[in-house]
Design a binder for these strands. Structure first.
Length: 1128
RNA sequence: GGGCCUGUAGCUCAGGUGGUUAGAGCGCUACACUGAUAAUGUAGAGGUCCGUGGUUCGAGUCCACGCAGGCCCA
């Protein structure tokens, strides 16, 4: 029986399948974890995917990336537990359910109960779990699928509640408001998802105003600011400028009142706000009513000079007067000079940017107090001004004698046309128009015009959306900002820029985490409040909830707890039915919000173990994570929520190393989408190429954090080039190892120091490779690791070692040299198996088994799988850099000789006398001499001659060593370079002899040392040379008769080998050769090299004057030869 | 609109701290090898380093402003 299986063709997908079932049958994954019991842990956190859609090719990328470091660390001796997980809550699930049921959110509670709805969500969310599990297994992602954490699990939710309670107790959970899209017509907030529906943004024509804000304490001086929502002007409480922008003060006239005035605006906006034709007109010449209004810059300054400037409100309304620092100029980074005036009007209640800028500047917004004393905006939820504004507008209409299509009452000032009035009606005037007229009359408007812009609309009502303050529960992340930033700096981000840039900037500009979601399927906020909101309870466990319910039952608010027994469901609607009791015996109701699903996943380090209720030991041993990986789109998602919860509650990072991987695009760089049909089906790809080439391609083609342009041809190339070459190398080994009955036995091997140079070289390279893979993987750089393995396998092992060592495998019987060759190749192959096992787990294990089965049968102890082995660290003592350099020289020199041969059309089969190599140092000579034999046989030459100074024919040239000299001479570098370039042989000899030389730089003397110039050999007079990498080679192309004859002999051998092959002879079959006489040179060649020809072709005899009737005519390029070959 | 990433040969990608002939693989062309053979090797052609300015003796590399593509957030 053969010890090493030989393969004609390799079925890569088949390897994937058979190895997978081997792993399953023998529980290899489980063993790889159990084996390391008691060892140091390496902790990995799984970012939970959602199983409500089928997995795509990008999931192969993400999951491979997660897998490889866990496998690597396992080999290195760590115990790596990997708990799988599922993300189950959230809007996409709800939308899918609604789509399938043909309902909308409004139907929930009407056509369908919340109970039924959530039941449907629960069913839907795990719909594709089987596909996911299938893919996970097929790509070899080792993760515990049998006991995953699931975010809808009551235990999971209970952990979340306990975390929320801890936040609450630290006073980090509060109710506030945030500016969100809101549809007054539908009476509901809109998610960004809803706002991104096609058709939501529509071009509409609105009245826009450039308003004039009078500068306090100055006569006729105004700051002007533009808005497309005039109805927000009564809520103005500050103006924003860009600190670095240029502003001007311009003397001009108001176009509506003709008053002389100065206005302040960004210099860059002058062209848009003043008529060019008025340029040069004199202020004095202006007469009221003139179409062209003169203007004149009277002052220029930077935005930051305006900071703190105060102005008078446009709408001096009692009851909304504000304390300072309202009505001042502040700065905001988003101010530009692309439109408007370069000065932005801010209304805290109606713009998210406005809100943020004002909060940062500590400026209050315009609000009024309701009956409870709460601050409310001046526009109500139906989209109309409160009476306090209505009265003012009504009075102003009377004052300015403004008529409209109807009589306006104090409650009639809707900010948009929510009453669906006919806008074409006679004298139709909406609130914006009325405001414009008032401002025009009061010298508060610089420009009023219709402006067409894109504005969001509610997808249900088709009416315009308002940005409006809505109540929400927040986590006060801003309170911990400094610590969040500080601890982030300890995290190793791949790529670094995502940590410092994208994530770091995000932390720097942190706002409080809005936790609320007004939805149905998700983790309920465990907060109960009494009706006047004077008492708040945050529940931290089921037990606590039951205890509180007990009090409620006592009080008679409830009859029994819905959370008894085994089957507990903490979702809506059950929690909504819970009424608790406050300290005064009043009812408390749950705040109806659900929490952000990102809190679900960010809490997984704790909730996956049901901490703090269970598993404290496991939790502590596995926290924080050593490594996590997800897409870069998770930066503000999972990466943030993990970090935030960890820092705020545990004063720790949640993860130490993180890879944020990029997107998988199609081969043209477009986003993949099922709709466009350019999405790649992972299952189909696996079936065609198998998992290993797919994984390898994804890792080696580009850094994972760059986007990957996924191209199946690339997978095929990896398969052909890397796996194919490796497989060929294995096949070569197996073929001869079987013939020679070779079995690797560590106890009986030839020690490395006894092995030939070539073996010691590849072993040195192998050790270097191990070190490189180790370094790369320790710094989470898989691309570098895979490329290093590929380079070694293809370029070093296959294309150099095997090619040069080939003869050792087929010559003669087993001897020490042969054994060394087998052992060396075997060691290389098994080591590659281990090195590649993290990336190509199936193939590596398959080949490992093919290689080791023989030894196992022979009774040696061999691991069941390469994944259960211990890492073979690099043996530094086997690394011989000198030897590696020597071999590099051999490769370079051979390449140069090939190049020369080609130039002179001399095929390699034609032996040549010698090459000449100029030698600049003894060291180089020694290094080349080491590999001289190898070069000679590789390029078929008889000898190598070295030319040194003594030869007298070596021509050298000198070049400046720029990095060294540049630092020293700087601007004079050009002179120095010119001086050195002029040097002849004498100067070079001079500096070589003395170690330094003095040069003249425009009269200044300067001494150059030897290492500051680079000396190379230029050429050899009269010879055809080639050079590269500082090595020059000359080839002696003289063909002596002797060489010609040998060439003929070699040609004949070649032709006879072909004949043998055509005749179907086996390697060991013997033949006789008869050749017809041709001419003296050829005949002589055959006679002289008869022995050589016979031994090469396994011929028992060679007669030059034989009977060649029925012989074959051989084409010998330059002549023809008739021969007859017969099997003995 | 803001933050971040990417842009180098037909394609996919390398090119520490700036240093003078910008590299590799694939593809292409030619040749060689024929005892790894449905393999393999060698050589050759192929470049506006996205653009424009700047810093510097010297820029693919540093700076500024753009352009194109992408991600996230508004």
């Amino acid at each position: 029986m053969k010890k090493y299986q030989e393969f004609k063709q390799v079925d890569y997908p088949g390897i994937g399948e058979s190895v997978l079932s081997y792993w399953q049958e023998n529980k290899i994954f489980e063993k790889s974890v159990e084996n390391r019991e008691g060892a140091e842990t390496f902790t990995f956190f799984e970012g939970p995917p959602s199983a409500n859609g089928t997995p795509g090719i990008h999931h192969v990328m993400a999951r491979t990336l997660k897998d490889i470091f866990c496998r690597y660390k396992t080999l290195k001796g760590f115990q790596v537990k990997r708990k799988g997980g599922w993300d189950t809550h959230g809007l996409p699930v709800e939308l899918q359910v609604e789509k399938e049921l043909g309902i909308t959110k409004e139907d929930i509670g009407k056509k369908i109960t919340v109970e039924e709805y959530n039941k449907k969500c629960r069913e839907t969310v795990m719909r594709f779990k089987n596909e996911w599990d299938d893919l996970t297994e097929k790509i070899g992602y080792w993760v515990d699928l049998d006991d995953p954490y699931i975010t809808f699990d009551p235990k999971y939710i209970e952990s979340l509640w306990s975390l929320l309670k801890r936040l609450f107790e630290k006073d980090l959970l509060y109710k506030g408001y945030t500016i969100q899209p809101f549809s007054p017509a539908a009476g509901t907030g809109l998610s960004s998802h809803e706002l991104n529906q096609p058709g939501c943004y529509r071009d509409v024509k609105d009245t826009s105003i450039t308003a004039q804000f009078k500068v306090k304490g100055r006569e006729n001086e105004y700051i002007i600011a533009w808005t497309t929502t005039p109805w927000t002007l009564p809520s103005n409480s500050a103006l924003a400028i860009g600190e670095k922008l240029d502003y001007v003060k311009v003397k001009t006239f108001n176009p509506y009142t003709y008053q002389e005035q100065t206005v302040i605006l960004a210099k860059a906006r002058m062209g848009a706000l003043f008529n060019k034709k008025a340029e040069g007109l004199k202020i004095e010449d202006y007469k009221p009513g003139d179409k062209l209004i003169p203007f004149e810059i009277v002052e220029e300054f930077k935005g930051k000079d305006m900071l703190g400037m105060e102005y008078e409100p446009l709408f001096p309304i009692e009851g909304i007067a504000l304390p300072s620092p309202a009505f001042t100029v502040i700065s905001a980074d988003y101010v530009t000079t692309e439109d408007g005036t370069g000065i932005v009007h801010l209304a805290k209640a109606f713009g998210a940017d406005d809100f943020r800028a004002l909060v940062q500047a500590g400026v209050p917004g315009v609000f009024v107090k309701d009956e409870q004393g709460n601050e409310i905006p001046v526009v109500d939820k139906r989209g109309r001004f409160l009476p306090v504004i209505g009265e003012y507008l009504q009075a102003k209409m009377k004052e300015h004698e403004i008529t409209a299509h109807k009589e306006y009452g104090v409650d009639d000032f809707y900010v948009k046309n929510y009453l669906k009035e006919d806008e074409n009606a006679a004298d139709y005037k909406n609130t914006d128009v009325i405001i414009s007229i008032i401002l025009k009359n009061e010298n508060k408007a610089f420009k009023v015009e219709k402006y067409e812009h894109s504005y969001p609309h509610c997808w249900r009502t088709d009416m315009p959306v308002l940005y409006y303050p809505l109540e929400s529960w927040f986590i006060k992340t801003t309170a911990c900002k400094d610590r969040l930033v500080e601890l982030n700096k300890t995290i190793n981000w791949k790529p670094e820029a995502t940590g410092t840039g994208r994530f770091g900037n995000w932390l720097e500009n942190l706002v409080d985490w809005n936790l609320s979601r007004s939805r149905f399927w998700g983790t309920p906020l465990p907060v109960w409040r009494n009706e006047d909101a004077t008492e708040t309870k945050c529940i931290g466990s089921i037990a606590e909830l039951n205890e509180e319910i007990g009090k409620s039952i006592e009080k008679g608010f409830m009859t029994e707890s819905p959370f008894k027994g085994e089957e507990v469901d903490l979702h809506r609607p059950y929690v909504d039915d819970v009424i608790l009791v406050d300290s005064k015996g009043q009812k408390m109701f749950r705040e109806p919000d659900l929490i952000d699903v990102w809190f679900d996943s960010g809490a997984m380090p704790y909730a996956q173990w049901h901490y703090p209720f269970e598993n404290e030991e496991i939790f502590k041993a596995n926290y924080p994570a050593d490594y996590i990986a997800e897409g870069v789109d998770q930066t503000r998602g999972w990466f943030f929520t993990l970090h935030a919860i960890a820092v705020m509650l545990f004063d720790s990072v949640a993860f130490k190393n993180v890879i944020a991987n990029g997107l998988v695009l199609d081969k043209n760089g477009n986003k993949m989408s099922k709709r466009l049909g350019n999405a790649v089906d992972p299952f189909k790809t696996l079936k065609e190429y198998g998992p290993d080439a797919l994984r390898w391609y994804m890792l080696s083609n580009a850094n994972p954090w760059d986007n990957l342009k996924f191209n199946l041809e690339g997978v095929a190339e990896v398969q052909r080039r890397f796996f194919g070459t490796l497989q060929n190398t294995y096949n070569f080994f197996a073929l001869y190892a079987n013939l020679d009955h070779f079995t690797y036995d560590a106890s009986k091997m030839v020690s490395v120091s006894e092995r030939p140079e070539l073996d010691r070289w590849i072993i040195s390279k192998l050790q270097s490779l191990i070190g490189e893979v180790e370094n790369s993987m320790d710094s989470y750089d898989a691309t570098r690791a895979t490329r290093a393995i590929m380079n070694f396998t293809v370029d070093q092992l296959s294309n150099w070692y095997v090619r040069l060592a080939r003869k050792r495998f087929w010559r003669g019987d087993m001897n020490e040299d042969k054994q060394a060759a087998y052992e060396t190749l075997y060691e290389c192959l098994t080591t590659i198996c281990q090195l590649m096992s993290s990336f190509a787990p199936f193939y590596a294990d398959w080949m490992y088994k093919n290689l080791t089965d023989g030894a196992k049968e022979a009774g040696q102890e061999i691991a069941e799988s390469v994944h259960l082995t211990d890492w073979n660290a690099a043996d530094e003592t086997l690394i011989n850099k000198d030897l590696e350099t020597s071999m590099q020289l051999a490769q370079d020199i051979s390449s140069l000789v090939h190049s020369l041969r080609k130039k002179d059309k001399l095929k390699v089969r034609q032996p040549l006398q010698k090459i000449l190599i100029p030698i600049l140092s003894e060291k180089t000579r020694e290094q080349i001499q080491h590999v001289e034999e190898l070069i000679k046989s590789e390029v078929n030459i008889k000898g190598v001659e070295y030319i040194d100074d003594a030869s007298g024919i070596l021509v050298k040239s000198a070049k400046p060593n720029f990095p060294l000299l540049g630092k020293r001479f700087g601007p004079k570098m050009k002179l120095v370079a010119a001086a050195i370039n002029q040097w002849g042989q004498e100067e070079i000899a001079n500096i070589e002899r003395n170690g330094s030389v003095e040069i003249d730089l425009d009269g200044e003397k300067a001494a150059l040392s030897l290492e500051e110039v680079l000396i190379t050999s230029q050429d050899i007079p009269g010879w055809s040379v080639a050079s590269d990498n500082g090595i020059t080679v000359a080839l002696d192309v003289t063909l002596t008769n002797e060489l010609k004859q040998e060439g003929i002999a070699r040609d004949l051998v070649n032709r006879i080998q072909n004949l043998r092959k055509d005749m179907g002879l086996e390697v060991q079959d013997k033949i006789t050769i008869k050749v017809a006489k041709l001419n003296e040179q050829v005949d002589q060649a055959l006679v002289n090299f008869s022995e050589y020809i016979q031994s090469e072709t396994q011929a028992l005899s060679l007669s030059v004057n034989g009977d060649v009737a029925e012989g074959t005519v051989l084409d010998m390029d330059d002549f023809e030869l008739k021969v007859k070959v017969e099997k003995v």
